[in-house]
Simulated assay, not measured.
Amino acid sequence: MRTALTATEQVPAQAVAAAPVGAPLRRTVLVQEIATRSAANAVGTAQLLSQSPDSTTIGELYAMQGAFMKQLWQIDQDWRAGLMRVYEGTVSLRKANTLSKVVEQDFNLIGQCGDLMTTYMTSVATLVENTNVGYSYWLSKKIRAAQAARAAATG
């Protein structure tokens, strides 16, 4: 278990050193980092639950899942509210009586759509990153506690 977590903790430094400068490559490295950490979390979780599945751990897992879903639900609600604002903006296009006003409103709506998508994607990425890192921290504490309990029981 510890080996998998140690490998993910070392990925960022290795990836940063190996990655050339450039946003597309940097993005790829960061996505790979999240995927690696997620895989390590999955392996660590499976090992932890197979060795010491206690009710506290299960309860904490459910609580974290619930918190994640609550935040995801809020992101969804914000997305829907933003879409409604854009829709309301399209209705107001009918009130424009000159070409310049129609063009202005068209580009305003395009800007609103761009802002909405940026906010949505940034919120989802932030949620995934924070959840991934927070879960890794929680998992490493649980693994250390389980190892300490096993060592105390055998020694």
Rank of each mutant, 00 (worst) to 15 (best):
A13G: 02
I110E: 01
I143E: 02
V43W: 00
P20M: 03
A35D: 08
G44S: 10
S140D: 06
A81C: 01
T126E: 00
A67T: 11
A35I: 05
I110S: 03
I58L: 14
A23N: 06
A96Y: 04
A4L: 07
D78P: 09
E33A: 11
A39W: 06
E104G: 03
E104V: 08
N132E: 04
G44E: 05
N130M: 09
Q51S: 11
R85K: 05
Q14W: 14
A13W: 08
M117Q: 09
V43P: 00
E60V: 13
S136V: 07
S140H: 09
W73N: 09
G22M: 14
Q10W: 10
W73L: 05
N130Y: 03
Y87S: 15
S38R: 06
A13F: 05
M121E: 15
N41Y: 15
V16E: 11
V91I: 05
V103K: 00
A4E: 07
V29I: 12
V43H: 14
A4G: 10
L109C: 09
K101V: 03
Q51D: 14
T56N: 09
L109H: 03
G59H: 01
V29C: 13
E60A: 12
L72V: 00
G22I: 14
A152T: 07
A67G: 10
F68D: 03
A19Y: 13
T36K: 04
T98Q: 10
K141E: 12
V31K: 07
T3I: 12
E33N: 14
A63D: 12
R150A: 15
G155A: 06
A67R: 02
N130D: 05
L139M: 09
N97G: 01
E60C: 13
L139W: 06
G155S: 01
F68H: 10
F107P: 05
T6A: 08
T126G: 02
K142E: 10
D106S: 06
Q74A: 04
L61I: 06
Y120V: 15
S50A: 15
L127M: 01
T57H: 13
R94S: 03
A149F: 02
L127S: 00
A96V: 09
V11T: 13
T122P: 15
M117D: 11
L116G: 03
G66D: 12
Y62R: 14
T122H: 05
W138S: 03
T56F: 05
I58V: 15
L48A: 11
R37T: 00
C113T: 11
Q77N: 07
S55F: 15
Q14S: 13
L25A: 04
R85M: 05
R37M: 08
L5E: 02
Y137S: 08
T57E: 03
D106M: 15
N41K: 11
K141W: 12
G59W: 08
Q105E: 04
M69Y: 13
V128W: 04
I143N: 05
S136G: 02
R80G: 08
L99V: 13
F68K: 00
A46Y: 08
Q51K: 12
V133E: 09
